[in-house]
Amino acid sequence: MEQLLQQVASGLANGAIYACLALALVMIFVSTDHINFAQGELSMFSAYLVWQLIQWGLNFWLALAIVAFVSFLIGVMVERVILRPLHSAPVLSIVVVFIGLLAIFHSLAGAIWGHTIKDFPSPFPNIAFAGSGYIGPHQIGMILVTIALLVALFSFFRFTPLGLAMRAAAQNPASARLAGIRVDWMLALGWGLAAAIGAVAGSLVAPVVYLEPNMMASILLYGFAGALVGGIASPGGAVVGGFIVGVLENLIAYLGNLLEKTTGVYIIGNGEKLTVALIIVITVLTLKPSGLFGHVTVKRV
């Protein structure tokens, strides 16, 4: 029972990591209708920038604020310079560009900062509290920041004219233009915001998994899983999906190990965590293609 609670808590902590990145994925999807395979590497690169500023003596939050802004500009640049000429290109070409971006940011980080893992300071005070045996202060902080980001994003898309315009531009660019929306800039803005969220995600993940060029590779996979389970078009769904994937993978391994202990039969265990998580994703998508919390698009003619 004790272990079950610990595994759930640890799953929630991991879930917060996935949820954070899933938010950035949703951001790009909602504003450009693309799935950005380079999101993980962009976040990793931003985390390195934050690390560098901290090395130069800046406070974590100040460094993060600066890097979030710089990342925003990088995101806007990527869209305007690299993706703009591909507006009418087929999806496959865009996927190839994303993979290219992934490789570029990956090798750039490796070339500048090396491949040895780096310690990344947690911005949250290391204090003991009731239940701190189950979940650390950084993990709690991460969950809170993720939820705060979610609320901010949700409000932005729902209530601000700019957020609405971005959604409109992604859903139906031609119609959005007819509403006077400068669609090209909305796409660039979406990229910028996603990059800024990615910077937050990367900087919160790095203290847990350590900073290195590969740090986001597997997290991106889980982040996708979370986003897809919850609904890639829904920020709230993505966050809940991230938590679900995080808790589920731990529970799967825990129950598998328990089963093996009690009956001696090995069915699933630590090695199958990702596999089972992906099976869940596929199952959810088969039963409910828009994800657990995604809106079903109904079209009537």
Binding site: Q7, S10, G11, A13, N14, I17, V208, V209, A217, S218, I219, L221, Y222, E249, N250, A253, Y254, N270, G271, K273, L274
Partner: peptide, 9 residues
């Protein structure tokens, strides 16, 4: 697995 983000669990 090398693809696991953490070994916490």
């Amino acid at each position: 697995e090398v693809t696991d983000p953490t070994v916490d669990s």
